[in-house]
Nucleic acid binder design. Structure first.
Lengths: 217, 217
DNA sequence: TGTTAATATGACACTATCGTCATATGACAG
DNA sequence: CTGTCATATGACGATAGTGTCATATTAACA
């Protein structure tokens, strides 16, 4: 984490460094981002950088924690009635707030997505620390409750579901990355609804449902 | 692609280089893999490497194409009756042959998964070239046929489905990466079946299905 | 054996980056 | 005014990697 000195900096300078760092990580990704470039663009002397941060990893950690904060904020922006949502609406909210986050902070979102699929799993665990585990536990508990409520089929084990929903979230995030700039929000929302529809009902037609629509005689 | 000289090499030497390269890309990932390390481990002189390959990218491309070949081989090993399978069994086969591939070539599988989530999308497109597009087109057509057959609900647009199934495949692949070494095959197969079950029926209980199992009175 | 073409080799020049450290600056306290 | 503490600065040595090229080696063949 940054040295206190960093926080004592005049805000413009601090923000400049942050902005430049975000630009770099966004454009180059973690591995290819270099301190040399960052201090060059932000026009701070080499020694100063090492005064503020231990190394690249330290800077990265700082940014990721900022991102997570921003994402959580986005997520719980309209939290008030979140508890009352049905399970599928809850998931929908999760996904849609993801779109919103991407719209509001495209670079941060992109960095976050990179971070989630970063090679170095250890690094992720170190950075997220306990907070990730807590979030997971909370989600597991939530799903178990919804199973008990009869909102979710209980033939699937919870950990599979958690993994699956988490990965759907990732998939959607990547979908935004790939198509976010070309597609309208309408289309993205439609995509979310499609995903949720599959999650709800699967893709096998109910007895007789499909008959006569496209089928050959 | 490698210079013909590379293919003229005595097989042991060629395979040594390949093996070392695989080890490196497996351990370090694309970005952090260096030619210096590879020539060092394979004990070939620097000049020779550049005789065989243009650069790191060229070597990588070569490996990826090898991997894709191996994966295809795995996939169609028991192709004879593939056409007769139901849609969901077809998908199951797709997923299960993925496990098998991971079992047979763990490092290659890992490299392939990395490749599929590689930052540099351009690179992926260049390497896969037309063959990816062909495979996609084939799959789209296949799904459309299955819709017409009434095997899949036709309220979802095909491209969403393709994306969804593709991402399930990715999810499973990552699951192998995370847990493949600790879990028995039984467990992995169970995981595949869970995924397919979600794909088929979703996770919302049918009318009355869940009642009385875990629900409070 | 002599000639030629293919291949092998590793020293070299170049570039990029890293983290440190001795020194400079500045602001504030006594 | 002076000493002290926090902060700023950028030159420096070290490391790691890249791609090239002049030279050496080998194989094949007339």
């Amino acid at each position: 984490m940054p040295n206190p000195t960093f926080y004592n900096l005049p805000p413009e300078k601090r923000e400049l460094i942050t902005t430049v760092a975000i630009d770099e990580f966004y454009e180059k990704g973690y591995e290819k981002t270099s301190i040399a470039k960052i201090i060059d663009k932000a026009k701070i002397p080499r020694g100063s950088f090492y005064q503020y941060f231990e190394d690249k990893n330290d800077l990265y950690r700082y940014l990721i924690i900022e991102v997570i904060g921003a994402r959580k904020h986005q997520y719980s922006a309209h939290l008030s009635n979140l508890k009352e949502l049905s399970f599928f609406d809850y998931i929908r909210h999760l996904f849609l707030s993801g779109i919103q986050f991407y719209r509001d902070y495209p670079k941060l979102a992109s960095i976050a997505i990179d971070f989630m699929s970063i090679r170095d799993k250890e690094l992720r665990i170190i950075i997220l620390g306990e907070s990730q585990k807590k979030a997971d536990d909370y989600f597991i508990q939530y799903i178990n409750e919804r199973k008990d409520d009869g909102e979710i089929v209980n033939s699937l084990d919870t950990s599979t579901l958690v993994y699956f929903i988490h990965s759907m979230n990732q998939t959607l995030a990547n979908f935004f990355l790939d198509h976010g700039k070309t597609f309208e929000d309408d289309h993205l929302v439609q995509q979310v609804n499609n995903m949720i529809s599959i999650l709800e009902n699967g893709i096998k037609p109910l007895e007789g449902e499909n008959i006569g629509k496209n089928e050959e005689i």
